[in-house]
Design a protein around this nucleic acid. Structure first.
Lengths: 204, 204
DNA sequence: CTTGACAACCTAACACTGTTAGGTATAATT
DNA sequence: AATTATACCTAACAGTGTTAGGTTGTCAAG
């Protein structure tokens, strides 16, 4: 076995870990995800994983980063042409669809506080950051076209308003979706109505 | 020491635990809250607390229930008179103010999935449920007065839309409030603008 | 006044968690 | 053939919530 084979093998082990991690995350959720369980799924001991990943967070981040590409693709597919307001609505729906497809991913990405901020030096790039940038860019276009009411001048303020609405719906569904005292309506259809109403209230 | 004194003492111990729990929750957050730390604050051992509370969740619930009364009072102060749309806006702001004042409480109440639902028999009454009921009642009034657009007929759908918007803002602030890549605007002023825009898009 | 009961608290322990230190065997390189 | 490094292991640490069982001290009853 030569060095290149060795690297290849290490890469395949890493991939095996990631696949098992995704499976475990989907099956057992964020709370049920543990290094020992993950290791058990591939016949390893928990410490064995630390030869391929620095820590638990790194494993989860890599799983999430991979699956997050589907949202990136959806957002990219919406493109740069057409009415910015329409595109914001479409982006919102893509965002909701991602949360529906990967609720545990979403939970880690958007519902878990980042550990204390002294990570400032090496910025583990955050997919959430990209999604925000995507939205803000379209908001800026809308502002340039004068599509918003005159009291809205700040792209960050507008982005935060829109992002919050989408996040509120999906995060409540994730945390309270099984509580019997909320007669939940279909998430997608409510989302559409929410975006329509909100944007109607935002545009000029 | 007679029986009544004994009860009184037990109650004061219970109160001491609750006070320490509130302090610990505010200081160290949800993640930093542990039974051993809580016990340490009052010179007890962790197990000692279990003679006054069945488990950790019960301690937190009682702390939260107490402080939640301030939101209940605010919502009650808004009353049953006046324009329902105006009242919804006021309720939203009261909700936001509660989240600002008690972020850790809010995190437990609205951002943590209730443990598996077989609690169906003995319903530990959930303050979140009350808040939702408050909102829904005013939404129903608005519906009765024909204040909403004709496509909105369902009080639950409307309530969920409005609740989501409020929740999205405050929950993102709590989880991502320290992330440097979001230039957060003032939560209260953004909230006001969000509610105005959303309600403008909802009303007839 | 003694006995029994009960409350309130303790120490130990269990089953977990993420993570680190240190050892071992196997494979690749010199 | 000797050395080095990889990939894995066991054991352990410091936590977590929680339970079992023992030790007080104060109460109520005989």
């Amino acid at each position: 076995m030569v060095a290149v084979d060795r690297e290849e093998h290490s890469r395949s082990v890493k991939q095996k870990i990631l696949d098992a991690a995704r499976e475990l995350l989907v099956a057992d959720g964020v709370e049920g995800f543990s290094m020992r369980k993950l290791a058990g799924k591939i016949g390893y001991t928990a410490t064995g994983i630390y030869h391929h990943f620095p820590d638990k967070q790194a494993v989860l981040e890599e799983v999430i980063e991979t699956d997050f590409r589907s949202l990136r693709a959806s957002l990219g597919r919406i493109g740069n042409v057409g009415d910015p307001i329409d595109r914001i609505q479409q982006m919102g729906m893509a965002y909701v669809d991602f949360a529906i497809e990967f609720p545990s991913h979403y939970q880690i990405l958007f519902m878990t506080p980042a550990s204390l901020p002294p990570d400032t030096k090496i910025v583990r790039c955050d997919p959430a950051e990209d999604a925000y940038a995507f939205l803000k860019q379209v908001v800026i276009e809308g502002l340039a076209l004068g599509r918003f009411r005159t009291e809205f001048l700040d792209a960050d303020e507008l982005s935060q308003i829109i992002w919050s609405s989408a996040h509120g719906l999906v995060s409540l569904h994730i945390t309270k979706g099984n509580d019997p005292w909320v007669p939940w309506r279909d998430l997608r259809s409510v989302s559409e109505k929410l975006f329509e109403a909100l944007l109607r209230g935002l545009v000029r």
